[in-house]
């Protein structure tokens, strides 16, 4: 994680940004046509820590899905680490999700029958790593989040905070260019949430690019900048004071 030793606020214009979102719109047809995103443009420099805030239905999850390659925009362009996510084929997007992006979900989304170490190794399975290699890497990542002694437990044997740490370890397994977190503290108690956020701070300090969606002000304030989304449009981008 220390390879990309960019500083927390490194937003230099000469380096290629990790995430480029250009004039992205997303429409759904659910009975009538719904516009989830309307001409959103956003750039996340490498090593930046950004929080997206907005009321439910504002389009923040849609934006996360588009950047994460889970969905494609109706118009506009999305690139992650230089790769055109929005125009990639389904298989290419799967590969980008597996190697360039690490997801952390509100509900953890761990595989119930896999052990912690196997859950962490899962992205590497689809990237064609050998079992030994991927279990080594996964063990290493679990140690990094302080779960070295829980590698062989299945999710149901872990607490909420432990599960979220497994999920973070999984997101880190392929050394992704971008970590996407969707309400990562939404399903854990305050103390555990603080621990989770501390881990994000550490990751940020180590140079990782992080995009986090939340509706909690105190969570968003841990980031460098807060992007406010309302009705599918970016209302404002607020720089937080360096703590």
């Amino acid at each position: 994680m220390s390879e990309t030793a960019a500083t927390a606020t490194a937003a230099s214009d000469d380096a290629e940004p990790t995430v480029v979102v250009e004039a992205v719109s997303k429409h759904y047809t659910v009975g009538s046509r719904v516009t989830a995103l309307d001409g959103v443009s956003l750039t996340l420099p490498t090593g930046s820590y950004t929080a997206i805030m907005g009321p439910s239905g504002s389009g923040k999850s849609s934006l996360l899905n588009l950047i994460g390659g889970l969905d494609t925009p109706s118009s506009g362009h999305v690139a992650v680490d230089g790769k055109p996510v929005s125009t990639a084929s389904e298989d290419e997007r799967a590969a980008i999700r597996g190697t360039d992006i690490g997801f952390v979900f509100q509900t953890f989304n761990l595989m119930p029958r896999l052990t912690a170490v196997e859950n962490v190794a899962l992205p590497l399975v689809f990237d064609g790593w050998s079992r030994t290699e991927r279990l080594d890497r996964a063990t290493d990542r679990l140690e990094a989040v302080g779960l070295a002694n829980r590698t062989d437990h299945v999710p149901s044997e872990l607490s909420g905070g432990q599960r979220q740490r497994v999920a973070i370890a999984r997101a880190l397994a392929p050394d992704p260019a971008l970590i996407l977190a969707d309400e990562p503290t939404g399903n854990v108690d305050t103390d555990t949430g603080a621990t989770v956020l501390d881990i994000f701070d550490e990751l940020h300090a180590a140079g990782n690019t992080i995009l986090l969606v939340t509706h909690e002000r105190h969570v968003a304030e841990r980031a460098d900048q807060i992007v406010h989304i309302t009705d599918g449009e970016i209302g404002s981008i607020e720089a937080t004071g360096e703590a």
């Binding site: 298989d91 799967a94 990237d127």
Partner: peptide, 16 residues
């Protein structure tokens, strides 16, 4: 279904 979603999110292609 949810497991399928998880696997897809972490890089599983349709053929996987």
């Amino acid at each position: 279904t949810r497991e399928i979603g998880i696997m897809k999110a972490v890089g599983a292609r349709n053929r996987d």
